[in-house]
């Protein structure tokens, strides 16, 4: 479903993605972890072309993402993206946030889009907040709305960039619960996170990155309990002591 072929990316002289080869089949839940600055965000931002790449190829649903001819709008409609900082639209209500893309990208009638949006809000447990503005919500609630917004386009893939890192500890659970439910529906997911519990519970595979390269991949249990490389072992002991 998602395929990286010898992907290389530089920010100026900084080699942020170093020859990435990766295949994510349909229905897989992939957790990406690694130290700060290792290129995790950059990696998943390339999947929906928020970032350009300089070498290699990324193919999503048989479409080469970085081709000039690719219909970006269509590509992105199939990929939901959830940001660390939520990035909800502050000038719109929760419902309007969720409805925006269905109405303007898919050109669905407003009344129908509203029904879809309410269903997605129900999925994240926030129907009663549909009329308020994001500023009136807690961090956890905002992130759940952001997930509903991503789901509103009925995407085939969901990408999460540290969805719980900006949250107070007591709110992390509610967001992870929503994500776990998504997994049970068979969504293909790519999650950058350091939440070991989440990874062990639902991930099919963990990918460890350092300095722009994939250092190690494995099942969650194997990776967290018996890392093959020293770098991964170091990293795991660091997040454990936190």
């Amino acid at each position: 479903m998602i395929e990286f072929k010898n992907v290389n990316k530089w920010f100026g002289k900084l080699h942020v993605l170093n020859d990435i080869n990766l295949t994510i089949p349909k229905g897989e839940v992939l957790v990406i972890c690694g130290p700060s600055g290792s290129g995790k965000s950059t990696l998943i931002r390339c999947i929906n072309r928020l970032e350009p790449i300089q070498k290699g190829k990324i193919i999503v649903n048989d479409v080469p993402v970085h081709d000039k001819a690719t219909n970006l709008t269509k590509l992105r409609a199939d990929i939901g993206f959830v940001f660390q900082q939520f990035h909800l639209y502050p000038h719109m209500t929760v419902l309007e946030n969720v409805m925006l893309a269905p109405v303007n990208v898919k050109k669905i009638a407003k009344s129908k889009a509203e029904k879809i949006a309410m269903k997605k809000l129900e999925q994240v447990g926030l129907t009663e907040k549909s009329g308020v503005h994001p500023a009136q919500l807690s961090g956890g609630q905002q992130q759940r709305v952001a997930i509903a917004r991503g789901l509103a386009m009925s995407p085939k893939i969901m990408l999460f960039d540290e969805p719980t890192s900006a949250l107070d500890p007591e709110m992390i659970g509610e967001v992870l619960d929503v994500m776990v439910n998504l997994v049970s529906e068979g969504m293909t997911m790519c999650v950058v996170t350091h939440e070991m519990g989440f990874a062990k519970k639902v991930a099919n595979r963990v990918l460890f990155m350092d300095e722009g390269a994939i250092v190690e991949t494995g099942t969650p249990d194997k990776f967290f309990d018996n890392p093959k490389t020293d770098r991964a072992a170091n990293f795991i002991s660091m997040i454990l002591t936190h």
Binding site: R76, I79, F81, F83
Partner: peptide, 27 residues
């Protein structure tokens, strides 16, 4: 307007013009 607003709008498939008209200009 924070870059994240553009990115969030782009991620859900809005065109550049829509990002500007619906998200950035109103704010």
């Amino acid at each position: 307007i924070p870059k994240g607003q553009w990115e969030a709008a782009a991620s859900s498939g809005l065109t550049n013009l829509q990002q500007l008209r619906l998200i950035v200009i109103p704010q």
